[in-house]
């Protein structure tokens, strides 16, 4: 512990140190998120790299998970842009919904703080997910439970860190954090709904203009 701390101390302002801080943060979430925000142990650059790793994780999961745990994937239909859009899109949606709500609810974190904290919170997904994807190739059905367990651990760990991060960044109580998290998810759904509605209306409008154009163009 002391060794890690000393090591991190020596590198505290380098990108390497900021990335390695992940390993401290995931085991000491409250301490870690506090330092992340107030002691500048993380940075937006490092957070962006972590999000990049999250995208890589989702690509590796699709492409390299063993057949038994990914039976319907044909091996060729991976679309990297799709994976990128879903991962980063969901993440940014969370950040924006989080920021929009906590601004109204006396949260103390800025959008930048939320972005950094949320990115660090997703670290267990990557740390467990990437090795697990490769390991699943040599795991027969007898180890399916282990696979499921590790997968769930990754999800629950990241979820817990998300909560802890939100709590520390905004200086909330636990109850308030859980309530806010639920509201954030609802807000995300509302944002998606509004987006689709808007897209639909715009496309209908464009369709209408185009059909009017053709009507006139074909007549005269």
């Amino acid at each position: 512990m002391a060794k890690i701390a000393a090591y991190s101390y020596a590198h505290r302002n380098t990108l390497k140190g900021q990335l390695l801080f992940v390993f401290h943060l995931i085991f000491h979430p409250f301490d870690g998120f506090w330092d992340l925000k107030h002691e500048h142990r993380g940075s937006r650059k490092a957070a962006t790299i972590l999000i990049g790793l999250l995208v890589v994780n989702s690509i590796i999961k699709t492409q390299f998970t063993g057949y038994l745990y990914n039976p319907y994937y044909d091996g060729i239909s991976l679309n990297i842009f799709n994976e990128f859009a879903t991962t980063v899109g969901t993440f940014l949606l969370w950040c924006i919904a989080n920021w929009s709500l906590t601004t109204l609810m006396d949260g103390e974190g800025s959008l930048g703080d939320i972005y950094v904290a949320s990115a660090y919170a997703m670290a267990p997904t990557v740390i467990i997910g990437i090795p697990l994807a490769f390991l699943s190739n040599i795991m027969p059905n007898e180890l399916a439970d282990v696979y499921m367990l590790l997968n769930s651990v990754a999800v629950i760990w990241s979820g817990g860190l998300m909560l802890a991060g939100t709590m520390v960044v905004h200086q909330y109580t636990m109850t308030r954090t859980v309530l806010t998290a639920i509201l954030i998810v609802v807000a995300m759904a509302v944002m998606v709904f509004l987006g689709l509605l808007f897209f639909n209306l715009i496309s209908q409008l464009v369709g209408f203009v185009i059909s009017v154009y053709w009507e006139i163009a074909l007549r005269y």
Partner: peptide
């Protein structure tokens, strides 16, 4: 999948 697992 069942036989795949056995073979694996």
């Amino acid at each position: 999948t069942i036989y795949y697992s056995k073979a694996l």
